[in-house]
Amino acid sequence: MSFLPDLLLEPLVRAALTEDLSPMGDATTRAVIPPGLQYAAALNAREPGVVSGLQVAAMAFRMVDPGLRLTLHSADGRPCGPGERLMTIEGAAASILMAERVALNFAGRLSGIATLTAAFVARTEGHAARITCTRKTTPGLRIVEKAAVVHGGGSNHRYGLSDAILIKDNHIAAAGGIRPVLQAAARARSHMMRVEIEVDSLDQLAEVLDEGGADVVLLDNMDTPTLTRAVEMVAGRMVTEASGNMCLERIAEVAATGVDFISVGALTHSARTLDLGLDF
């Protein structure tokens, strides 16, 4: 499931390779690998998970040496098991070694995000709630980290600040309250832009419902009974999103409240890297 154009990924991979190879290339490979030595290597999973980042890893190898021959045995978005071969790389041993760490860093990090996302998604089984990510991403890597969330079965929240109007508590405080901030948003929005507003109490939610003008309400840091009551109050008039310290152990009960989305910052800021290895 590779849906990002290579032209968007190329700057990320180039920057990572430049960081690793600057200023004078790979000293170890230059010292110990005979020129012209040909080899084959396998990118293998060492634990179960969901694959992401193969598209980026393949680009790292090809960017170092377009002559390398790559065979993909899996695809982004597929589950993997321990010992499963994900990719074979054949060609100059020096080129494979120069790209190895960058390829593994991307694939391991992104597969970890996809794997954690899949674990959250599994806890929503039987309910309509969707797991979505946030903007709590690694600087510079948002595009691939959000793609990894999709590979894990989740959905993407807004990509950046320009995608939608998301009114949070600090916006409300600075603008003078819920009513004036919603009125200002209504004046500024285009016909293509949705408005979401954050509330942390049922009283605030009642004010939002009375004023109107929001498409989505973010129910922040509410306990489960309060979330249930909030969904009842909304009664389908807005999309509902639960947020705030959403841990894996709580997801099933939050999904059971009837919310439409559960946003989880941990998907991208706390995912453990999946153990992948490159074996000659």
Score class of each variant (00 low, 15 high):
residue 1 M to S: 13
residue 4 L to A: 05
residue 12 L to A: 02
residue 15 A to E: 15
residue 16 A to L: 00
residue 17 L to I: 03
residue 18 T to K: 06
residue 19 E to F: 03
residue 22 S to H: 09
residue 23 P to G: 04
residue 23 P to E: 02
residue 31 A to F: 06
residue 31 A to Y: 06
residue 34 P to H: 07
residue 37 L to Q: 11
residue 41 A to Y: 10
residue 44 N to Q: 15
residue 45 A to C: 11
residue 53 G to V: 06
residue 53 G to D: 01
residue 56 V to T: 14
residue 56 V to C: 07
residue 57 A to P: 05
residue 57 A to W: 07
residue 61 F to M: 12
residue 61 F to N: 04
residue 61 F to Q: 05
residue 64 V to H: 02
residue 78 R to Q: 15
residue 79 P to W: 09
residue 85 R to P: 07
residue 91 G to H: 09
residue 92 A to P: 02
residue 97 L to T: 14
residue 103 A to Y: 08
residue 105 N to C: 11
residue 105 N to A: 05
residue 108 G to P: 08
residue 120 F to I: 10
residue 125 E to K: 10
residue 135 R to N: 08
residue 136 K to C: 12
residue 136 K to P: 12
residue 137 T to Y: 05
residue 139 P to H: 07
residue 140 G to D: 01
residue 143 I to N: 00
residue 143 I to C: 07
residue 144 V to F: 07
residue 148 A to D: 00
residue 148 A to H: 06
residue 149 V to Q: 02
residue 152 G to D: 03
residue 152 G to Q: 13
residue 154 G to H: 03
residue 160 G to N: 13
residue 169 D to L: 03
residue 171 H to F: 09
residue 175 A to Y: 08
residue 187 R to A: 14
residue 189 R to V: 06
residue 194 R to Y: 13
residue 201 S to M: 06
residue 203 D to F: 08
residue 203 D to M: 04
residue 205 L to D: 07
residue 206 A to Y: 12
residue 211 E to C: 12
residue 212 G to C: 09
residue 213 G to Q: 09
residue 218 L to D: 06
residue 219 L to C: 12
residue 223 D to T: 08
residue 224 T to Y: 03
residue 230 A to I: 05
residue 233 M to H: 04
residue 234 V to C: 01
residue 235 A to V: 01
residue 235 A to E: 13
residue 239 V to G: 00
residue 244 G to Q: 05
residue 245 N to F: 08
residue 248 L to H: 14
residue 250 R to H: 13
residue 251 I to Q: 00
residue 261 F to G: 02
residue 262 I to C: 00
residue 263 S to N: 07
residue 263 S to V: 13
residue 265 G to V: 07
residue 269 H to R: 12
residue 269 H to N: 14
residue 272 R to Y: 04
residue 274 L to T: 10
residue 279 D to L: 09
